[in-house]
Write a protein that binds this DNA or RNA. Structure first.
Length: 503
DNA sequence: AAAAAAT
């Protein structure tokens, strides 16, 4: 179906056309008329199928009646509020909104933390119809009375299930309490757990549900592979796969900020153009890293789940789960960074013996079997004792050899001859990971390394109380917990890996 | 046992 048939105005159609789009995707064809009708909506569609335009375009159409070139701020109250779980995603939605409003006198801006507040305040003072924000900084503006939300007609929760989970729900409730009761509420995501839908019922009025394909389903354009491998050999296998599959670019997902930093350091040492992105990096570095990945300068983006959702990197061919995600929903989102807008992609997950549970949860959520395979030269050390290797009996006999045989020895020889200095060192890949080395337990524990970003460290240098503040307040991973997060959450969601949980 | 999000 074409966008013109969906009841959008010429100014919007022109912007859409200039961006090179003519046909609406299924989620857009279904959601746009419903959003135009003013109904509340819960919309589920796979990753990379155009959810952002599915809410932005009809919102612009609805706000068109307010389009006004006047410079009087009073003429431009916030009419639409779009919330995102990460700053980078907020930024991306903002870029889209800017492009779609090109021919309409509607103003939009992006509000998130980690950057100077003054330009945001100045924008808000001038008057803005459309605000795209992350919750923390938005609340900051609310507190400082630099934003008014009493004229908001439409609220969008992008990545809605994430916005409603325990880490965000308090902020979202607070923000919603400041919005008019009479408003439209739109929830978009590729994944919706049943408990999230129940929770959504609290604040939606007679919502319509739109589903394109089953919720939680992965994009069929993405080929999914699971390789069983000992954790100590993951890094060697990753290097091998990058070479073997000639990965021009890849996002490699890690579970923690520390392992992301560690892996990017190791990959750089191995000669890969790798950079890490995670929440402890300064926002300027996060943005710079993402941009140099998009430009192709960085080949391997080592990321935490900060990059799991929403980010649109055109023609990204590969995603690797270096560590299986804690929640199976995040698997769906992670691999959704590839295979976008009709393109194909490959997602490879490296599964160590202690990650069988996550693998099972992923199979269950996505209702597909992902038989673990092995790569030649990277088989488990002792395949005969599957019982005590940690790989559950469920997977015994399910593994098969990789359809594409590995040429590990030859590849390594070739690389060594190109870089003779490398052969001087012991074969790193043969060594178990640090955490597995037995001598580690006999040593006195080392002081934890300071992994906080430079800005935090220099703040502490200027103000010695800074560190004490952290110690007093209590912290997780070097971050001060905001007051409200230490209160008992109003709603506790069930654990993710509960066996027999109805999906 | 995690990450994210305000300073």
């Amino acid at each position: 179906m074409s966008f013109a048939e969906l009841g959008l105005s010429p100014e919007i159609l022109r912007a859409v056309d200039e961006l090179g789009y003519s046909e609406a995707t299924p989620i857009q064809a279904k959601a746009i008329p419903l959003v135009l009708s003013g109904r509340d909506l819960l919309a589920a569609a796979q990753t990379g199928t155009g959810k952002t335009a599915a809410f932005l375009l009809p919102i612009l159409e609805r706000l068109k009646k307010f389009a006004n070139p006047s410079v009087s701020p009073a003429m431009h109250p916030v009419r639409a509020l779009i919330l995102s779980p990460t700053r980078e995603l907020a930024d991306q939605i903002g870029v889209n909104a800017k492009a779609y409003t090109k021919h309409l006198p509607l103003r939009c801006t992006t509000i998130y933390g980690g950057v100077n507040m003054d330009p945001q305040t100045a924008d808000l003072r001038r008057g803005i119809e459309i605000v795209i924000a992350t919750p923390g900084r938005l609340l900051d503006h609310i507190q400082q009375k630099t934003i008014q939300l009493n004229k908001v007609d439409v609220l969008v929760l992008d990545e809605a299930d994430r916005m409603l989970d325990m880490g965000f729900i308090q902020d979202i409730r607070k923000i919603m309490s400041l919005l008019p009761k009479q408003r439209q509420t739109l929830l978009f995501s590729a994944t919706f757990a049943p408990e999230i839908k129940r929770l959504a019922a609290d604040f939606m009025h007679d919502p319509q549900t739109v589903e394109v394909a089953r919720q939680n389903s992965t994009n069929a354009q993405v080929e999914q592979l699971v390789y069983a491998v000992d954790s100590g050999r993951k890094r060697a296998l990753l290097s091998h796969l990058i070479r073997e599959r000639e990965m021009s670019q890849v996002i490699v997902f890690c579970k923690t900020k520390i392992s992301a930093d560690q892996l990017s350091r190791d990959l750089k040492r191995d000669g890969h153009a790798a950079e890490a992105i995670h929440g402890d990096k300064a926002q300027s570095a996060r943005l710079e890293t993402l941009n140099s990945f998009k430009s192709g300068e960085v080949k391997v983006l080592v990321a935490t789940d900060v990059a799991a959702r929403g980010l649109d990197i055109s023609e990204l061919p590969f995603v690797v789960n270096y560590e299986m995600p804690n929640s199976p929903e995040d698997y769906v989102h992670r691999i959704g960074r590839t295979g976008r807008a009709g393109a194909s992609g490959v997602a490879i997950s490296l599964m160590s013996p202690d990650e069988v549970k996550q693998h099972e949860a992923i199979e269950k959520l996505t209702r597909q079997t992902l038989p673990p395979q092995t790569v030649n030269g990277f088989e488990r050390r002792d395949a005969s004792s599957a019982a005590d290797s940690g790989f559950g009996s469920r997977n015994a006999g399910r593994e098969r050899s990789d359809a594409r045989p590995a040429r590990e020895p030859r590849a390594e020889r070739a690389e060594r001859s190109e870089r003779p200095e490398r052969s001087e060192r012991p074969e790193r890949s043969e060594r178990p990971e640090r955490s597995e080395r037995p001598e580690r337990t006999e040593r006195a524990p080392r002081a934890p390394r300071d992994l906080r970003d430079a800005a935090t460290r220099s703040r502490e240098q200027r103000d010695p109380q800074e560190g004490l503040k952290v110690a007093r307040v209590g912290e997780i991973g070097g971050r001060i917990l905001p007051q409200r997060q230490r209160e008992v959450p109003a709603l506790l969601l069930p654990p993710r890996y509960k066996v027999n949980q109805e999906r």
